[in-house]
Design a protein around this nucleic acid. Sequence first.
DNA 1: TGAAATGTTGGGGCG
DNA 2: ACGCCCCAACATTTC
Length: 465
Amino acid sequence: MGTAIWWIRRDLRLSDNQALHAALDSAARVLPVFILDPALWNSPYTGEKRRAFLLGGLRALDADLRARGSRLIVRQGRPDEELARLRDETGAEAIFAEADVSPYARRRDARVAAHLPLRLIGGLTVRPPEAVRKQDGGVYTVYTPYSRVWRALPLPDARELLPTPEHIPTPPDVHSLALPDAPVLPEGALFIPGEAEAQRRLQAFVADRIASYATGRDMLALAGTSGLSPYLRFGMLSARQAAVAALTARDDTYAGADIWLSELIWREFYMSVLYHFPNVHRESFREDLRSIAWDNNVDAFAAWQAGRTGYPVVDAAMRQLLATGWMHNRARMIVASFLAKHLLIDWRWGERHFMRHLIDGDPAANNGGWQWSVGTGTDAAPYFRIFNPVLQGEKYDPHGDYVRRWVPELARAPLAHLHHPWTMPADVQRVAGCIIGVDYPAPIVEHAWARQRALRVYKNAKREA
DNA sequence: TGAAATGTTGGGGCG
DNA sequence: ACGCCCCAACATTTC
């Protein structure tokens, strides 16, 4: 019984951690290790806000470890090299880590496993990507049958959740880098990193808001969503803990709980899709939509990024993302549809922008959401389903609170015009203190024209295929 | 987890 | 009373 390494990647928690548990079972001493991997840290798919959240999470984890006689060992470099070095320094006999699904993570882990005793353990999802299969062993590419099988498998139970270890014996004198300086969280930061905050939020959600989740989740200005995505992204909360909470709430006949469970299953569906079809990271899942003649206008893209398209609900959402590192899920669908269909810009540009700014940015969920919205993915929205940003705004921000909060230029515009401010007569614009084209942009594309163009271009791509 | 275009129906105004 | 038209309101089809 020697030393084992617990290699932490996106499982920043001590409770219900299968990799940590396996390490403690196998060895007398466990070394919790996080490796700052430049390939991820400096990736064009990474940004400041998620880096800051991760660093905060590592600090919180280090504090939790210190309370249990342990501490976090931080290294920087290529994981295979750093782990080999640690093995040589400490004589560690095994490395335990939670299996991941992204193409990069799997290449990285294969390189490590080629030379080191790496043991990959489940936990990223309730169902491992191999677990939900068709009768003939095939992989599901449609959500509904996938979810049916997911739900029919034995459901997780609170008694299965692994407890937080009381003591984690860790060898002394192992060098650790200091973490980069703690970033100062922005004023009114939405997400406080760490396992304690994740568990507190989960309890608050299932005790209160989950009951109205079925309708509340769609309203842009309400705190109707769970607000847990950043914590699931970094494993400050396990998928199993979330599923158990949903199932428990469902027993109390909360209708919203089952809807939320289905959102957790969407997450696992997209993890499965990325695992089995890693090419979706580079290209559309649907072959017949790989040749769309994108317009890719860089000025239009810049306007979309900055929240200056002239469509209030789109601009509110894009500014919310830049300011907070989070965007309401319905807003994600609206702006994704707008980028691909109204602006005819390659969805991969938008996918990358999201990854650079979303704290919860996850390769599988983000890619799945984008390909669903633009119609190129598994079980995707049909290509002709084009969101009308005016109607979406009127339906899901009926009082205009969301738009007024994030697009202050329109704060005094009357509600009747708020989601289409270009229809304000000149005197109304003056009274509202918002001249269209001066204080707030005129629409960069006209809806009906853009819709017809998208239908034509998508149809052409299908015909050529 | 759309929206627009087109079709159908039925009430009311009107000659 | 009756036919005709208009047009909401709703349903269906199409993109």
